[in-house]
Amino acid sequence: MSTYILIHGAFQGKWCWEKVKYSLEQKNHHVIAVDLPGSGEDMTPPQEVTLKSYTDKVIAVLEKVDSPVILVGHSMAGVVISQVAEYLPEKIQRLVYVSAIVPQNGQSLQDIMGDGGPKAIFNKTEKTLTLIDEYIVNEFFNECSEEDATAARRKMRPQPVLPFNGKVVLTEKNFGRVPCIYIETTKDHAIPVEAQREMYRQNSFDDVFSIDADHAPFFSQPENLTKYLHDIS
């Protein structure tokens, strides 16, 4: 069966993939969920975290896997998996973007999102953003159960901001040869589906799947998300 590497989005950690990871493993897939530097259980000081820190972490995981993987990125991690594919295209069977940012060559996450990101407080010393609590459920977990939303809110951490300014370098020779799949989320308040569609229509995606989910389909629609990820294999 296939090997999946799951990369979380901003403010989150590998914990967000627990349901999907378990379900894919029940289908005999090998699944690795990664904590990016400064996120989840990774204690890298946030002011030291850059886009290169992210890509280095994912590359280190990829290099330990013998066969090409299905590399899955949620939200902000669309930028991360794109740049990793440029560096190691031969290690990636497919890229899967789950309600994710799709950058063009030379773009950063900040270039794409502008001032349209989540409502958050900036800590100048630590170089982090902390989500304003009253907006978290409406922007991230609007279709989730109260139990899942409450548990997720407790685990969310301040997000290092320096990776947002890292510009990707993507070429047709490397990134362009990796097959790409997009999974859109139609009830997403963080990255509205219209914005998702505008991004993926600018790229050559092999397929697009649609889930009636919020920005956290791994909580609100884990069965459907697992089904699509399994079918992609």
Rank of each mutant, 00 (worst) to 15 (best):
R157C: 05
K124T: 06
E147V: 11
Q196I: 10
D111C: 06
Q83W: 04
T3S: 14
L109P: 01
P45T: 10
S75T: 02
V98P: 04
P160E: 12
E194V: 13
E139N: 14
R201C: 13
E86A: 00
N203I: 09
Y4V: 00
E194C: 02
V20D: 02
H29N: 12
V20N: 04
R94L: 04
E126N: 12
V61C: 04
V31K: 00
H30S: 11
F209I: 07
K127H: 10
S204A: 14
P46K: 07
G117P: 05
Q110F: 12
L71R: 03
E139M: 07
L71D: 04
T3I: 08
D42R: 08
I232K: 01
M76N: 07
E126Y: 11
T44I: 11
E25H: 02
Y97P: 00
G106T: 03
G117I: 07
S233Q: 06
N138S: 15
I183A: 11
G117H: 11
M156I: 15
E126F: 07
T44R: 05
V208G: 05
T226P: 04
K227D: 07
Q159S: 13
V98C: 12
T3N: 05
E134P: 02
A195E: 12
S220V: 00
T44Q: 08
T130C: 01
A100P: 06
A149T: 09
I132K: 14
M76F: 15
M1F: 08
Q110T: 10
I183S: 07
E25T: 08
K167I: 06
A216K: 05
E143R: 12
R201K: 15
V178P: 02
V168A: 01
D231H: 15
V168C: 13
G116V: 08
I136K: 15
M199I: 07
M1L: 11
E41K: 11
W17P: 02
T125N: 14
V65H: 01
E223A: 12
P222C: 10
D214P: 03
F219T: 00
Q12H: 15
D56H: 11
V49I: 06
K155V: 02
M43E: 14
N174S: 15
N123T: 09
L36G: 05
K57I: 05
K124D: 14
K91S: 04
E146W: 06
R197E: 12
T150W: 10
N224D: 13
M76P: 00
R177N: 14
F164M: 12
P160S: 09
V208N: 02
V98T: 07
A151F: 11
I211D: 10
V208C: 10
F209W: 13
F122W: 13
D206P: 00
K119S: 14
G116R: 11
V169W: 03
P160C: 05
T55H: 09
V80R: 08
K227Y: 14
D42K: 10
A195F: 10
D206Y: 08
S233W: 03
T3Q: 03
H230E: 13
G166Q: 07
K64P: 01
T55Y: 10
T171E: 12
S53Q: 08
G9Q: 02
H189V: 04
